[in-house]
């Protein structure tokens, strides 16, 4: 049976549409009108210039984390620990911001470097644990929770603001430590530049470098990679460290532009969201920024939705979650056809 070449490419739109439908049903069950709700999300994400810039500001750290995951997934690693690496990045940047006072360019560069080092360190820890036989999913998950606990300890303890208000965050950083913002938004041109630069470098590294090829060999088939002389130990640690560094940079951007101090929920699940982005993009380089931008729009638009309808803010996460699940399950036409053929063969046999 022949089929047009465009069909498998456009096929994932069908489960996406079903995801939208299911979310609409959920909205109806809670007495909200789906067109109004999706309209509110759209307006919240793109309604005016400030909102668009806010969406981009949300996109940048998400994008940086997703880029990191492209590297670790290429090496066949399930880096769930990215959430903790993001948080450690925020902590690293905050540490420099709270302890040094240098001219702005130097100060910000140092903060970024500290954030990348902290993220890479946390990721390296998960890599070492993997060497000791702890799967990176469990090592990463424990490290995520420890990172949150560390944040809370720092806020309530050593980095408590002098007034003694220990509830939600440290004192705001001094002006030279923060990224310059555009107007009244949280959008920083420097951060956007960094994200685009990182995208270019990751594409180059994965597509055109020998290192990218080694990671691919390791991810596809560790045993034959070993025979070809790829050291799984070295490449695993390197892939984790690079991913952690990018996530750490994302954490720095978050703490230095979206916020102005270290907060309790500094990440708010951006690391986990990045995992969803990369799964939905099916680990493809060029799709990742687009999917990340779509997620950023849904989640930053959900703020307006919550204001208008008083519904719980997790609706944006439900929409993206159902979307990823359905596309993951039903988005591949070949596997659907294989299942269908198998099912029919099974019926004929019995």
């Amino acid at each position: 049976m022949s089929r047009p070449a465009w069909l498998p490419r456009l096929w994932p739109l069908l489960p996406s549409f079903v995801a939208l439908l299911l979310t609409s049903l959920l909205l109806l069950a809670f007495g909200a009108s789906p067109p109004l709700a999706f309209g509110a999300i759209w307006e919240g994400a793109f309604g005016n210039q400030d909102r668009l810039l806010t969406t981009v500001a949300f996109w940048i750290p998400l994008m940086l984390s997703s880029l990191g995951l492209l590297i670790s997934f290429r090496a066949g690693l399930w880096n769930i620990g990215i959430e903790g690496q993001f948080i450690l990045g925020a902590i690293g940047a905050s540490w420099v911001a709270l302890s040094l006072q240098l001219p702005a360019p130097l100060q910000i560069s140092l903060q970024m470097l500290a954030a990348m080092a902290a993220g890479a360190l946390w990721a390296g820890l998960a890599g070492v644990l993997k060497r000791w036989g702890v799967h990176e999913i469990f090592g990463g998950l424990a490290l995520n929770n420890l990172a949150i606990i560390l944040t809370n300890y720092l806020i309530a303890g050593p980095w408590q603001p002098p007034e003694g208000g220990s509830f939600r965050g440290t004192a705001p950083f001094h002006a030279d430590a923060l990224l310059p913002l555009v107007g009244a938004t949280r959008f920083s041109v420097v951060a956007l530049g960094l994200a685009l630069l990182a995208f270019g470098l990751v594409v180059l590294a994965l597509r055109n470098s020998a290192w990218g090829l080694r990671l691919k060999a390791l991810g596809r088939n560790p045993r034959s990679a070993l025979l070809l002389g790829v050291s799984s130990r070295r490449e695993t640690l390197l892939a984790m460290a690079f991913c952690g560094a990018l996530a750490g940079l994302g954490g720095a951007v978050r703490v230095l532009s979206w916020f102005d101090s270290l907060r309790q929920s500094i990440s708010g699940g951006i690391g986990y969201l990045a995992l969803m982005v990369v799964i939905l993009a099916a680990f493809r380089l060029l799709w990742t920024p687009l999917v990340a931008f779509f997620f950023a729009a849904v989640l930053s638009g959900s703020v307006v939705l919550q204001l208008r309808t008083q519904l719980h803010s997790s609706l944006g996460n439900i929409l993206t979650g159902v979307l990823v699940l359905l596309v993951l399950l039903f988005g591949n036409l070949d596997s659907l056809r294989a299942w269908w053929a198998e099912w029919r063969a099974g019926r004929r046999r019995s």
Binding site: I80, L275, M276, I279, N317, G321, V324, L325, L328
Partner: peptide, 8 residues
Amino acid sequence: VGFVLTLL
């Protein structure tokens, strides 16, 4: 699939 379901 399991991870996506956990978050969902």
